[in-house]
Design a protein around this nucleic acid. Structure first.
Lengths: 369, 369
DNA sequence: CTGAAAGCGCTAACAA
DNA sequence: TTGTTAGCGCTTTCAG
């Protein structure tokens, strides 16, 4: 068992004892100083710090973890996707973890992976993580979240309790979806179609539920749901099918990428957005304001969600006996741009929609609901 | 030093010795089996595996790291951004690392961070990582990549050697940028403007250099360079300025996001893409085919780059004495869609560009260069 | 093919 | 306020 040395067999890395010797104190005192414990005289502290600096000392986290039973590492189970939502959430988690003094260990589970989330959690536990965050969860068999460390589920609606040591945090995406749907209804549309995400995702189900609620609350008809896989390509495919429907005046897409694909398909089918069909997206991706037409969409406060979730997780880690806290839910925002407008005037029904009409000015007040 | 137990003081986690006892062998033998070493009888191996499984044994990586001096963890320094390119690269790295049996520890450096990449590298070294990958590097002061473990710099052109134990891997983005530029030139444009990324990024500088090369090779004029920050918003701002220029018939944007913003600004200024101005992007983001017009762009093989880079890194980790290997460079692809076309016919110069022309059919052969 | 002993560098408990 | 003494659970010699 050789001590760590440079590739060329250079000098071994300095250890706590080396620093202790150099500073003329015991090794334990070095440990105390480095951990910011109380009861060290300023003088000793100064000497130790100085010696550590001089020797280029670096704490050995493996030894620390072994001795203390804590690794100061948080494991993250992410879906292997470059989608804006999940990626943003991950970014927020990393920053929050770093601020709290934790490192991040990331495992991706590609959809369809054998073992999936459960396997990923196990591998993280083996890695000795102090807590786990599951980002944007999808459905899984059995109780894959069984874990001896606290688990934060990000992207589930706030307050959901999915397991014994599980905390949930996320935006209230049902409310968001409701807001998006109502916005369109308020514009005077008789009903709104929905282009959903994959059913296995919580996020997709929440948005679907919110859409249903909004329609039900006003007694509107619920058209059949189209389903995509979050990609623009799937949005395009769904758009081709939807374009064939006679009653289509508005669509709420479960994310912006699908909304863009959808608009592309509608345009190819000769329909104009928003004059003929209104489209609402979800996420407010950075491109949303720059596509044509600029997307009306719902903005999620990814950073706030990640921040709050991680604070709760760290609290649970550091107070194992305490009750698990509950997330508050974060405020959200509907960003109205130009992809939504009042429905086309029409002789109540019939295939009038290709009629050329003058561009509707902003002055057109939406008819009362 | 208490052994790890459940929150409620439940039973301690089983250790190697426990498995050994249960299997009637020594602890060392357990270790041998678990590490897949040779010289263990099938019978013993079976018994050990069985006992481990029965007890729910999990190897303690901290202890392993402490004893062996290796953590089987690779540290990643990422730029804290949800941009498609960096995010895709990170995904590829994670998968490749996992395949090679390494865990990933991720640190983000927000641009402008104090300490920046250097600090991030130090914190990873403290974490005991066996190797480091710096993704999409940007300029830094001094030699921040000084490290006793091998470092893979992803996104620098293949073959670049930036530090003592540094491996570089990436696509040849200069060649890519050249290809994009030449494509437009081949269409008959007298020259191409460039909307560059932030100067501090290697990626931005490479693309800029490739563009210059292509123009220089044909003796074309090099118009002044516009610079953005990769965002669609910055592309829009640059577009407003470019739209005012009289000689604008084509722009090569350093990424797709900026290209989309650019097109949006050009459209707002009354210019049509591609009839009046051609636009080429870079990255082939998933939305590229679904914006209007569908983007002609350059596709980067993120996965292949990550794969190759990580293979080299792992090789360097596991063969400390060996020469550092060199990356090959990956094949790339120009994806021609509809945002590029021959330049507008014009009376040699003058503000003719708003003239309404019939839509150019595909049959228009580009004039020879 | 298998086992015994000796650490890896740190923190936890207890003294002083 | 500081030091002493035991380990944490593994891997690494080196002997069988």
């Amino acid at each position: 068992m050789t001590r760590a040395r440079g590739r060329d067999g250079g000098p071994a890395a300095p250890r706590g004892v080396d620093v202790a010797r150099a500073a003329g104190v015991s090794q334990k005192t070095v440990s105390r100083v480095l951990n910011g414990e109380r009861y060290v005289s300023v003088d000793v502290r100064r000497r130790v710090l100085e010696a550590a600096d001089r020797l280029g000392y670096r704490l050995n986290t493996a030894a620390r973890a072994l001795a203390s039973g804590r690794s100061r590492t948080i494991g993250v189970v992410a879906l292997g996707t470059a989608l804006y939502g999940p990626a943003s959430l991950l970014l927020g988690v990393e920053r929050a973890a770093r601020d709290a003094g934790y490192a991040l260990s990331v495992v991706n589970t590609l959809e369809g992976d054998q073992g999936g989330v459960g396997g990923a959690v196990q591998s993280l536990l083996e890695r000795g993580v102090d807590g786990i965050v599951v980002s944007e969860p999808i459905d899984e068999d059995a109780d894959p979240l069984a874990s001896e460390v606290p688990v934060l589920v990000l992207g589930a609606p706030a307050g959901t309790r999915t397991g014994e040591r599980t905390i949930a945090a996320g935006v209230d995406s049902e409310a968001l979806a409701r807001a998006a749907t109502e916005h369109v209804l308020d514009l005077g549309h008789p009903t709104v179609h929905h282009l959903a995400g994959p059913e296995r995702w919580f996020a997709a189900r929440d948005r679907l539920a919110g859409w249903r609620q909004a329609l039900a609350a006003r007694g509107r008809e619920q058209p059949p749901v189209a389903e995509g896989d979050w990609s623009a390509a799937s949005g395009y495919a769904a758009g081709r099918r939807l374009a064939a429907r006679n009653d289509l005046t508005a669509v709420f897409a479960a994310n912006d990428d699908m909304a863009v694909g959808l608009i592309s398909a509608l345009t190819d089918a000769g329909l104009r957005v928003p004059q003929d069909v209104s489209v609402v997206g979800f996420d407010d991706i950075p491109l949303a304001a720059y596509v044509r037409p600029p997307l009306t969409t719902v903005r999620q406060p990814f950073d706030a969600v990640a921040d709050e979730g991680l604070r709760l997780l760290v609290h649970a880690i550091e107070n194992p006996q305490a009750e698990l806290p509950t997330a508050q839910g974060q405020p959200v925002e509907l960003v109205v741009r130009s992809s939504t407008a009042p429905p086309p005037a029409r002789a109540d029904s019939g295939p009038l929609r290709h009629t050329v009409r003058p561009l509707a000015g902003e002055a057109h007040a939406p008819p009362a609901a």
